[in-house]
Design a protein around this nucleic acid. Structure first.
Lengths: 223, 223, 223, 223
DNA sequence: TATGAATGAGAGTTCATTCAT
DNA sequence: AATGAATGAACTCTCATTCAT
């Protein structure tokens, strides 16, 4: 009986080893330039074995992405699991997104490459499902938090939580993409600190959505 | 001397023909899937000739992108060349960005694929220079407009125009990317209209940056 | 000792199960396209187990062929086991070959793929021996019958029975191969019915070998 | 003007070189075991170049087959172009088929592998067309000859020429296949000379189809 | 200037077979 | 006896780029 379990565990572990190797190679080379040969070598396995565990290179790529999404989700969970006031939690969420970005730039990049139409051709349904589920979970976390802030009277009642989530999320992501790619340019050529800009952007948006009660609370938190 | 000029003109024209063909193919297939064979065929030229005018496939790709950027710039110029109040011009700018996006989705996509690290490997310095210059020109247009709005007392004095430009631009772009990729999802699964969301996002940000004078003016414009 | 026997019996049965599964897959896909994975799955066994019972894919293939040869032999035995006159038996033999062909096309095809040089590389001596033995048995049946017809004065004395057998067999086989592959073509494009052609061919050859006594007898049989 | 022609000629020549190399490799290894690498090496060209001239390995294979068919056709034409009596021409045709077989065994094998269902998957329409046309031409030659023999009163009027052609052709082919594969066996184990058997088979069939006038003529020819 | 034939490295993937358990 | 994970060589085919003409 223990045998089946152990085998199962070993199999899972092997999958993890492959993912780890794939991650390493994808981080260095990106989807196109990475080769299955390299990944196999990094995993110290034969190429054939890779295909025993993953359907295709893209399948493998998406699996690595999912790992990144999982890590990101953990950042978010941790940031919003405290008993602090809801506006602080939202602020924490923004900070944790940035922290994730800084500590996992490669994952961040892959996550925003995911929607690239090049992908999704040779991906197993299973992986695709998990991927969608992960997405939903993350959005739910954000949306629920905003809903709570509305319910508690900190954000305006006429705000649609989904809409607010998309707005905050999109602008944060876009600014982090700028930081990732052109931080130096903006800092040195234009004299603008993008990290500060990101915080400003979030503040502006959030405040613009707040009730007076929210603003009061928010300023006491910030200070 | 007339001969030299004519030759120059013909050469430029040939470059344009190639770009037009490349655009067609890149629009249909994307960077990876497009082949130089297809482009050559579309241009009714031999593959070798392509390399006489462009250093590499990526060079060609970037040149097509630049065409898109040029078109975009023309949208912006037109939208901001009127005698309307500056806040209206900023609003127009936002609208014209969205209009460009809707009328030139393929170009829009390519523009935001530009920063992809996959590119930039085999690109000629010349093309790269032109590319940067174009970028600068567009940013200048946006920044100058915001500066003017500050100078005229419509936006808060403590706002850094560059920062404001980055914020507005990034969030607009991010939302249009969402529209491009997942409009249906948000509309049908989440009941949110992303175009409306984009406008809301821009309004929120802009208003958050306005002086009282600006808000007064803005509402009179909007209504 | 009963144990040894039972084990032996079980082993034989397992071999049969594997052959049955292999047959199914080979019928559907042919030698090249069939994979050991598919066969293992069809047999509800692991791939490794297949190799416990058969040396190679080709070994397995040849074993399936032998099954076909066995079935064919049974058709022949049945067709020639009656007390009818020997010329009738020869005629029956031809009919039974055609009947076998029609009811077992897949086997028929495999039998005539057997001599393909692609095979015979990785085949166990044991299987090869059995294969030759089967062959000999079938030829013997045909040759003996012809010998009997000569002895009984129905076929000409100067006919070598082996030669006659080869001639009759080869032309029958060749025509059935035509039927198998191009029946439609001959029927629709050329207006020729190949089944009728096969019977004609056999009649012509047989009659050409007959004595006058034979011809008399033959016509009384046919009518 | 001459340039285009020369280029055309060179291109054709290159195609021929490739075919020659492919033939060499296919003769040695057969379709499955031959690799494009080997063929490229034999042709002293790069693999890519092969694909410039031929769509796939199978396309190349079929092109080699067509070469064989062409050679065979030339044998037939030569054998039937004399002013000899028509029955002699038919006899010549049979002899020339055997001669082709003996001098071009490898081609013979390939020709009868052509109908193998494995093929015909990745073959260019162009090649397939030429292939069918060749087939038709050969059958026409045989059928016309038989028709002539009927018209001239040497073969029975009730014979359908197409049917006679199929019968003669099939049995000849089948016996040559036996010679190709098992000549030794029949000679040494069974004491039968298959070449003689082939001639006998053809004689028997032909005579069985003859009118009395034909038989008279035929015997005078044979002697 | 223009051609297009030639290149050749390398891609992803498959699968018969082996072998430790 | 039975497993099935692992192998790894081999496969066909692609395509950006070069270069002789």
């Amino acid at each position: 009986m223990g045998i089946t379990e152990r085998k199962e565990r070993e199999k899972e572990q092997r999958r993890e080893e492959i993912i780890a190797a794939a991650q390493k190679v994808f981080f260095e080379k990106g989807l196109q330039l990475a080769t299955m040969d390299e990944i196999a070598e990094a995993a110290e396995l034969s190429k054939g074995t890779l295909y025993l565990y993953y359907k295709s290179k893209e399948d493998l790529y998406l699996s690595v992405i999912m790992r990144g999404a999982e890590i990101m989700y953990e950042f978010f969970e941790k940031a919003t699991a405290t008993n602090e006031p809801v506006l602080k939690l939202i602020s924490n969420l923004g900070d944790s997104y940035f922290e994730f970005f800084q500590k996992n730039r490669q994952y961040f990049r892959m996550l925003y490459f995911r929607d690239n139409p090049q992908l999704h051709k040779q991906v197993s349904q299973e992986v695709l499902q998990v991927c969608l589920e992960q997405d939903r979970r993350i959005w739910k976390l954000v949306i629920d938090l905003i809903q709570r802030a509305i319910d508690e009277g900190y954000l305006q009642k006429n705000i649609k939580p989904v809409q607010a989530a998309v707005i905050l999320w999109s602008s944060s992501t876009a600014l982090m993409q700028q930081i990732d790619r052109n931080d130096n340019y903006w800092q040195e050529q234009m004299g603008v600190n993008l990290e500060e800009t990101l915080r400003l952007s979030n503040s502006l948006l959030l405040e613009a959505m707040m009730t007076d009660k929210g603003k009061l609370e928010y300023h006491s938190i910030v200070i």
